[in-house]
Design a protein around this nucleic acid. Structure first.
Lengths: 140, 140, 140, 140
DNA sequence: GTGGTCTAGACCACC
DNA sequence: GTGGTCTAGACCACG
């Protein structure tokens, strides 16, 4: 898990860290149950303050993407896909919340794509490609 | 052009204004060449300061989405889609820049969609629906 | 970094600040990586509002001349001149845009020089002198 | 004399008109003593208000570039290059004033050229080319 | 009447 | 401590 941070970006550092972990989990580089680096380790590696990493982890926890294991640090949350065993109601709420925000973001992205002159089929092709291609998610 | 602003959001107000205008242009509610409200009118209507609207308009201008004609206020930029007549090189640059940012945003949205448990076909269906359905872009 | 502002000029103050920083960077008085004064410090020193300096810095950022590191304020942008490692595509776009504007300005300056009765060799001599002489750029 | 105006530009219209006439005079398209179009004719042709053209002409007069002939409208000013017959002291003052401003502009242009990575010889070559090539001054 | 600029002073997010 | 955002109100250049 190597973080590429852009300190000149207007996106806050903690948000960048959060985003990269989201990308890592989504493309399978970080697997469910896998341990994340400790806050201090990640802070040292990335050259940022521990408070910043702490904030990113707190955000990921509040989104239900990682869980804090008291004994062994933070772990990527296991996806409970066993039929009949659903997560807690608050877990469901978190997931629904993330989904709602994601749809809003998607609407804006689609609007921007239209303004760049992209057609529907172009856009769908791009989505399909990005959805499949695990590597490309983290590039750029 | 009715704006829905969330003053409690961490998204800056000028950014929210910009986003809503982008959505409006993309879904055809604001047509190319159409006049936007004056800065003062929009500020009054939205209950914000003129400088905030000014900043939103400046952002949209820098992105090549609107133009401010000295004589008659701001207008939605005409897309010059005449074959063989391409825009200026700086226009192309702006469009390319927006496109690049859009792709980055899309990667993140796709990652988040995956984390909500959405499959590829679900996601593509959602995209297709949002791309077509002109009304839904501004809802929510 | 001492700014000389002309409050009676029709050139906006934020533009004057921008111009002086451009001159300072070009003649080596401000070196790549060097910290610029904080917005507040510069505003105090120059006797203008912080938002005016803010606007000047935002302009310089958009032109790719300075970068604002979240942790330590604004710095003169490092020119990445390492062979084989070119800047990002948006950086190239910004540079190309500035270059285009510069050429347009140069055409006008040359026209004005002709109207003052200056000959070609006189003009080229003046250019050569100004290009070399690091100190003279900021005088006057 | 065909004017190309960009109403979306941040350069005021009257300034654009003034600049294009300066370029026209400098590259010989408008010859000394030649009549300029009447204010009304130019305003109609360019699709702008007569006040705007009036302001451009007033600016050119104040710079000593054109003269107002009471009987036959505005004319390009004759360059008095006859030895021993110099213009009035105010004319000399105007020319010196224009020259001073031109040098200031040139300093800024050179600074910007440096920031685009242009070297001294590149810049001098560009200057030489633009100084000679009469056509290129008005292009773009 | 339009957008653009500026001020004085405030609050906030980030690190 | 830094830059970023916002307000309320003012003035100006432009067309």
């Amino acid at each position: 898990m190597i973080l590429k941070l852009d300190f000149a970006s207007e996106v806050p550092i903690y948000q960048q860290i959060r985003n990269q972990i989201v990308l890592g989990v989504a493309d399978g580089q970080l697997k469910p149950g896998e341990r994340l680096p400790t806050i201090r380790a990640l802070a040292d590696e990335a050259g940022v303050n521990t408070m910043t990493v702490n904030k990113a982890y707190a955000l990921l926890k509040s989104e239900g993407i990682i869980v804090a294991d008291r004994r062994s640090g933070a772990r990527v949350r296991e996806r409970e896909s066993v039929p009949g065993v659903s997560g807690s109601s608050t877990d469901q709420g978190k997931k629904a919340e993330l989904k709602g925000r994601t749809v809003q973001e998607l609407k804006l992205v689609i609007a921007e794509a239209k303004l760049t002159g992209m057609g529907k089929s172009d856009f769908l092709d791009l989505c399909a490609e990005l959805f499949e291609d695990k590597k490309s998610l983290q590039e750029g």
